[in-house]
């Protein structure tokens, strides 16, 4: 039963990925702006100095003179062999470029996830256990503001406060956690807070609501009646079940974080895939854009699949209790 569900879900991914690949392939070609012009036509004054012979010679070498379906089939057949093509701008393998950038996005996403969860769980639990007290209102106020606040604004305000006024943290930059963990933490601190708040705000509300729900359940009342210390009860039972429900929320957010936040990466000059995608679009680097979108889409559907499967797997236990 479970295996059948899994196969069915994976089967459903195929049309989604095909649609995404067709869409990105067409969209990059529909955007005005000719990659060959961009390759050739740049000098410091942004003027065109393009000769027709060079233009045609390059178009032909890149295969842009062929019908679009031929180009698509060629691209897909290469992907199947694990080849995403060469970047137009740097002539390096797209695969190599993307995986140079992807770790930065993953590290930031994981840090943000930790920050988000570290904020959301205690806040949500406190709010629920002390419903309608000052603590609850403060927690809910935070959650409401966190949802409403544009993340780029929060980013700017944090930069103003911690980098410009206090000078505690660098405003931008990146260091790999594998090479220099301390500098990574310094650099990741502000962006992780921004993305973590994005995650924590809705999660806090969710956990609070679930906890309130759980605390009304019979099993909590029973445990209560048995005379177990209340803290144990809350944490062991109510929180556990609330967290299972929160898996979906966290999972969806993770899928989004792993796609690379263009805004946060732009504000903090973080060298991740979000910025790679934007840069690729600006230079009309078709292979880079196609590769990055495909990666983001695969990550998204894959994480979604994992979330659903994990939830399905956890679900029966909830019903049993």
């Amino acid at each position: 039963m479970f295996v059948r569900y899994l196969i069915q879900r994976i089967w459903q991914l195929i049309p989604v990925l095909i649609l995404v690949s067709v869409a990105v392939f067409l969209i990059v070609r529909v955007i005005p702006g000719d990659p060959v012009l961009v390759m050739l036509g740049i000098d410091p004054e942004e003027r065109s100095r393009i000769s027709e012979e060079q233009y045609q010679a390059l178009q032909q070498q890149l295969g842009f003179d062929r019908p679009i379906y031929v180009q698509y089939v060629h691209w897909v057949s290469k992907i199947v062999q694990g080849d995403l093509g060469l970047s137009l701008r740097s002539r390096r393998p797209v695969f190599e470029i993307i995986f140079e950038r992807y770790p930065a996005t993953i590290y930031l996403a994981l840090t943000a996830l930790l920050v988000g969860i570290a904020i959301a769980i205690p806040t949500g639990v406190i709010a629920a256990t002390r419903q309608n007290t000052g603590a609850d209102y403060a927690a809910m106020g935070f959650a409401l503001w966190g949802i409403a606040m544009p993340n780029f604004w929060l980013a700017l305000m944090l930069i103003v406060l911690f980098s410009l006024k206090l000078g505690w943290l660098p405003s931008i930059g990146y260091a790999s956690p594998l090479e220099n963990p301390l500098r990574f933490l310094q650099h990741a601190c502000l962006p992780a807070i921004v993305m973590g708040t994005d995650l924590a705000a809705p999660l806090t509300r969710y956990i609070r609501a679930e906890m309130l729900e759980q605390l009304k359940q019979d099993y909590v009342r029973t445990a209560w009646a048995k005379g177990l210390p209340s803290r144990m009860v809350i944490i062991k039972h109510a929180l556990k079940n609330s967290l299972i429900a929160a898996v979906t929320v966290v999972g969806l957010q993770t899928a989004r974080l792993l796609g690379g936040s263009t805004i946060v990466e732009t504000v903090f000059s973080w060298p991740g895939v979000g910025r790679l995608l934007i840069e690729g679009i600006y230079s009309r680097d078709y292979p880079i854009v196609q590769g990055a979108v495909l990666l983001i889409a695969v990550t998204y559907v894959f994480i979604n699949l994992c979330v659903d499967v994990v939830y399905k797997w956890l679900d029966p236990r909830i019903k049993l209790e």
Partner: peptide
């Protein structure tokens, strides 16, 4: 327009007036 689009429009002579750089 971002640069790539502007380049194409300019090359096709599709504009009224524009700000531009020179060497």
């Amino acid at each position: 327009f971002e640069r790539a689009s502007a380049l194409e429009l300019r090359r096709a002579g599709k504009f009224m007036f524009k700000l531009a750089g020179g060497s």
